[in-house]
Amino acid sequence: MAMIRRTLLALRTSMWLGWQVESNWTDPFLFAVYSLVRPLAGVLILFFMFVVLSGGQRGPMLNFFLVGSALWPYVVNSLQGIAFTVVEDREEYRTIRYLYLVPVPYAVYLIGRAVAKAVIASIAVIMTFGFAVIVLGLPIDPTVVDAPYLTVSFLLGFVGMWAMGMVVAALSLNLTQHAWSLPDAVGGALYLLCGAIFPITQLPTPLRLAGSLLPVTYWLEAMRRALFGLSIGSFPSLSNEAIFLRLVLSTIGACIMGFGIFAWGERLAKTSGNLDRTSNY
């Protein structure tokens, strides 16, 4: 019981720390603008890519683009965010050795930081969706939205993203020279593989199979189905239940792999002396 209480306290503290680190570099207005501009630009890039070909017409494919792009900050902040936390702690703030001195597992601290990043991403996601609905005409009909499916899938997706983030964190702990590049690079790979901005049916078979193993792929598919019902998607032949089942299974797999690899990576970083090795790279 005391351990659970201590873990929750550690989570809360690292969430607060994460919020401070992410937001206290500027005033709230600029922070809100900063949080919004990037995802909004991402959505608009896809919007213009679509309209330059369609001549201003709307269509289900545009909805596909907009939803994937609007939700992408969650993936960036949750998955890449965990890895960037490791690199910042080690390379920029140089606090990682002190974090290992406190009686809280580093993994718990990382999850707390990731939760803070997810909260920050929510600001961007909500505002981007608002912009997409009001300005770009994203047709979200509340009578069509499957709220229970949306809620459960939405929350489950974070578990999968954080678990995958732990894998990238484990690699970052052991990389000295390219640790800054790795999280962005992994994000780029996911952008291609998980059906964020196009259905993975477009991909060559080996890449499509790789994408089919990722919980983020099923999370994005479930979000689109919950918002629009069965429309253009990455898995046209699967039912909503099948997508949810695959989301659950891939999340469980990601958790086993993520936390297992993180434990291994942490041990390796300690024994190799990479844990607090700053590269100035």
């Binding site: 890519m49 590049s181 790795l182 962005d184 690079a185 992994v186 994000g187 780029g188 790979a189 952008y191 291609l192 593989l193 964020a196 901005i197 196009f198 477009q202 991909l203």
Partner: peptide, 11 residues
């Protein structure tokens, strides 16, 4: 690895 993100826009 950064090429993968660019490739996504091709698809």
């Amino acid at each position: 690895l950064p090429l993968l993100a660019v490739t996504a826009f091709v698809f």
